[in-house]
Design a protein around this nucleic acid. Structure first.
Lengths: 102, 102
DNA sequence: TCAATTAGTCAAAAAAACATGACCACTCCC
DNA sequence: GGGAGTGGTCATGTTTTTTTGACTAATTGA
């Protein structure tokens, strides 16, 4: 027995959980962009220089699973998908802002 | 020209910088332990199940370089080395505590 | 003197993360 | 009908991170 649960052990400490959720090459930038705008896949791909579909798709999927982002299908003019910061995501922004003026 | 600077581009955003400094398998746990005690290499190795010398050495070295930890040689009884949270490291603790009661 | 403890380093292998390029299905608009 | 845009997936390869195991060198205590 190494670890009781089949999953990759979620940290008990909220700070550790936060760091884990935002660890990765693109997640921090995706998060920051999401604080100022709704995100769309191809737009993001163009905004983030050097990024590729695969990595962005993974980052977005995981951030959604972690409850940081919310995915919405917009059934309009050009049918598309929006990723927005969730309640949980929003709540972390104020904490990060404190870090700003530290 | 890919990136002007030779280094691995330090993020402008403090939150991104923080995440980058604490990204890695062992750094979050090392940081948390450092909030409650002075750290010693071999003790840490025993405390962190599954950790190995190499990874811990790297984590400690990088966290020191990032100004999160301070390394001190204790010239006493059993000559040894202590790693303590720096001023900078301490200042981040209060921010993390906010995350706690969110 | 000698074994254990201190705190590591180094080379190599294994594992995880990330990138590349091809492909796909649907919608949109001319 | 067909080209461009939407948002992806998949297999493969490269790069980065982490682990393993051997080794080092000084200190400590019996």
């Amino acid at each position: 027995m190494t670890t009781p649960d089949a999953q990759a052990t979620t940290p008990v400490c909220p700070a550790e959980a936060m760091i884990k959720m935002l660890s990765g090459k693109w997640k921090p930038q995706v998060f920051r962009l999401a604080t100022t705008q709704a995100l769309r896949f191809n737009t993001l791909l163009r905004q983030l220089e050097g990024a590729n579909k695969q990595s962005l798709a993974t980052a977005l999927r995981e951030m959604e699973q972690d409850g940081l982002l919310e995915k919405t299908v917009i059934r309009l003019k050009p049918l598309h998908i929006e990723y927005r910061l969730s309640e949980k995501g929003q709540s972390m922004v104020s904490v990060f802002q404190l870090l700003e003026q530290l």
